[in-house]
Design a protein around this nucleic acid. Structure first.
Lengths: 141, 141
DNA sequence: TTTAGTGCAAAAGTTTTGCATGGTC
DNA sequence: GACCATGCAAAACTTTTGCACTAAA
């Protein structure tokens, strides 16, 4: 990994008030390498393949921390495992290929007015929302 | 439970080509009683409280079957457990109260055109999509 | 020096499976 | 009667915790 990418990751943590450690950088670097989402178990397996000594518990603890800090997004494809993914900071949604599990981030949000309307209609105040579109990507079609 | 509701549930199963059994009707009836979503474990506990002899494995098997048949929706509130809920047949989305977990179904879908646009933009063919809006309901505000 | 992170192993919890038995069509 | 559903107990997994030890600020 390029030396400045390393530094970026450190800043990413420090900026969130999170203590910087070698383990956390390893986890973060692995997340940065993944194009798509991964489970904690998968991430751990890949770290081991790179001869990292990181323990599974640390992976779980780190991912929970990062999710808390808003550095990673969590998704669950309606299986029993939680998936993690390093995400852009801005509001966005996901396009997921049901065949190859590729994830594409969509920056635009098409909900705008509708969101306003339906939440008010039911007496809710919206805090957050997520849209997950499942489909087939170009390669899998 | 009213006698005709019983019959309705039987028809619901039979209509999907699913074999009708007392156990499945019990699970279905319990789901019908729940306003909000439940985990398999919760559902099982409630059945026991009603002196049902249904085994936990049967609850899991039945819920999987019903989800497959499209009779229940599954959601995961980003915890480790999967939640189930008896849903209307038509396309709809969910409004979830983050404080009391109340779920409201929203029949309208505000995605229409936007969905078309973004999927095509990324070379996807959309198969399905789900919108989950988190917020505070009137009572919890 | 104080406070927090980590590895390991054990525990806790959820979901799945094998198998003998009983019920549905 | 054939085939599927069920209960029970065991197994398989994922995730969390306790604790002794190490490292960051």
């Amino acid at each position: 990994m390029p030396r400045n990418a390393q530094a970026d990751l450190s800043e990413l943590l420090a900026g969130k008030g999170v203590r910087v450690t070698p383990r956390r950088l390893e986890v973060l670097a692995e997340l940065a390498r993944e194009r798509d989402d991964v489970t904690a178990q998968e991430l751990w397996r890949r770290l081991r393949e790179r001869d990292s000594q990181t323990g599974l518990a640390t992976v779980y603890r780190t991912l929970a921390l990062l999710a808390d800090a808003g550095v990673v997004d969590t998704m669950s494809h309606h299986g029993t495992e939680l998936c993690y993914r390093l995400c852009t900071e801005s509001h966005h949604h996901h396009l997921v290929c049901s065949s190859c599990h590729r994830v594409v981030e969509v920056e635009q949000c098409g909900l705008g007015k509708w969101l306003e309307t339906v939440t008010r209609q039911h007496g809710f105040v919206a805090i957050d929302h997520r849209v997950e579109i499942t489909g087939l990507c170009a390669a899998c079609r």
